[in-house]
Amino acid sequence: MNEEKFRVKVKQKATMSFVIAALGLLLLNASRLDGYFVPENFGYVSGYYLGVSLGFIFGGVIHGIILLRLLKNETKVKTKFLEATDERNIAINEKSAVLTLYVGVIGLLFATFFMKTEQEIQMLLYTAFGLVLVYLFAKMFYNNKM
């Protein structure tokens, strides 16, 4: 990958971030139209929809803006390009992803036996959040080890 391709990739990522933000907006509106935000229907699911959609909206917009601002700074683009193509960073990301996958699979196997969740969406969100944490810890671990 050269620097020009990296720029294109960053632009694609920025576009994807705004698409995610738009999806968040759609989800928020859909759940509002479905009546999840009226006081008599408000419950766990309303909270999930509100949290996920606001997370998508703000996360997508903020990430998109960060990426677009990055493209305007030549020095930052060079640094990020170096970080993205650095073989040690790539190795750390790969190892962390593999570890997360293992933990995810083992966690799901145990969850199947022991967890009695009332709502699938609740379990899905806990799993997703847990796996993000595992990935971040794995990156920190390998960053120190390698």
Partner: peptide, 16 residues
């Protein structure tokens, strides 16, 4: 050589 400084530090330290 097209890597980050951290990689050189890790190489010198024998970690990578």
């Amino acid at each position: 050589v097209g890597v980050t400084r951290q990689t050189i530090i890790s190489l010198e330290g024998g970690k990578y």
